[in-house]
């Protein structure tokens, strides 16, 4: 399978933050979850994918095409959902459809009305009267109505109640059934991903820590618990980050085999959730040198 999105050696500097030499590929036909703490650079990366921001250096390609020459062709094939409402607050969905629809060659009115009905959205009420969940559904209905091959979503589940989050994830799963679509979405609610993501890209302080299949993540990462006396400058190398307590240590490893070889049965190895991984990485690599 090819890559739908390819970032090569992308660097973008801001005053107090930067993305450094990022290489990121999004595989066609899969759901990739883009995780990282607030401020890790997720939105910046997504903006570069949408050509809202231009990288200082490096290359951004979508569907193998370059924004410099094929901007319209690329955007025809993307459906986007942003964190905030980007549609005109004062307009109703019918009018928004009148503005957005004709922009796409492949816009499908029937499909749009199908989603409006499915999401139970009012057509004649101004967007500003919508709840957060309804706004999200409206954005999604618009994003899905032009047969986009790639759906890019920035924090689509943020601020949604659990019931609607589940509904949304079910819908995304349904969308993936035909196999041709790719979904790339950022979130900091990692439990969403356990259900639907095939790949996890993890960003921290502007650097991509990993981009693995969810299977590889569960295979490679684990929580290790044991007595403090087991830790020394050599054995510590098996861990990404270590939390010490008076009763013992708890640490994250990305090399289960090494842990097993080093500690044998003296430690307890548990499955690490994505949240565990994010939390431990937040502590940083340097912490284990202390």
């Amino acid at each position: 399978m090819g890559n739908v999105v390819e970032l090569k050696n992308v660097t973008k500097k801001f005053k107090d933050f930067s993305i450094k030499n990022m290489d990121l590929q999004v595989k066609q036909g899969f759901v990739t979850g883009f995780i990282g703490a607030n401020g890790a650079g997720k939105s910046t990366t997504i903006k570069m994918m949408m050509n809202l921001l231009k990288p200082d250096s490096g290359e951004v390609k979508l569907f193998g095409l370059d924004y410099k020459t094929e901007e319209k062709a690329i955007k025809e094939r993307i459906g986007f959902v942003y964190d905030g409402n980007v549609f005109f607050e004062g307009l109703n969905l019918k009018d928004i459809k009148r503005i957005v629809g004709p922009a796409y060659k492949r816009w499908d009115d029937t499909l749009f009305y199908h989603y409006i009905e499915q999401f139970e959205l009012p057509l004649n009420k101004a967007m500003k009267t919508f709840s957060k969940g309804m706004k999200m559904k409206a954005s999604l209905a618009i994003a899905l109505s032009h047969n986009a091959e790639l759906i890019i979503m920035d924090e689509p589940t943020a601020g949604l109640d659990p019931i609607f989050r589940r509904e949304l994830l079910d819908l995304l799963q349904e969308l993936m059934l035909d196999g041709s679509r790719t979904i790339f979405f950022s979130t900091h609610i990692t439990i969403d991903l356990d259900r639907i993501a095939d790949y996890i890209a993890f960003l921290q302080n502007g650097e991509l820590v990993f981009n693995h299949s969810i299977h590889d993540v569960t295979e490679n990462y684990a929580l290790v618990k044991g007595g403090r006396e087991l830790l020394d400058s050599d054995t510590k190398k098996a861990f990404v980050h270590i939390d010490r307590a008076s009763t013992g240590f708890e640490a994250l490893t990305n090399n289960i085999k090494l842990v097993k070889d080093t500690f044998g049965d003296t430690v307890i190895i548990e499955r690490a959730s994505l949240e565990d991984i994010m939390n431990y990485f937040k502590g940083g690599f340097t912490a284990c040198l202390i």
Binding site: M50, N51, L52, E71, K72, A73, K75, E76, I78, F80, Y82, G84, N85, V86, F87, F88, V100, A103, Y104, K105
Partner: peptide, 18 residues
Amino acid sequence: AYDEKAETNILLNSLPYT
């Protein structure tokens, strides 16, 4: 009055327009 808003620009630039 609409177009000076950042959201409008994000929308227009995410649609297939240059």
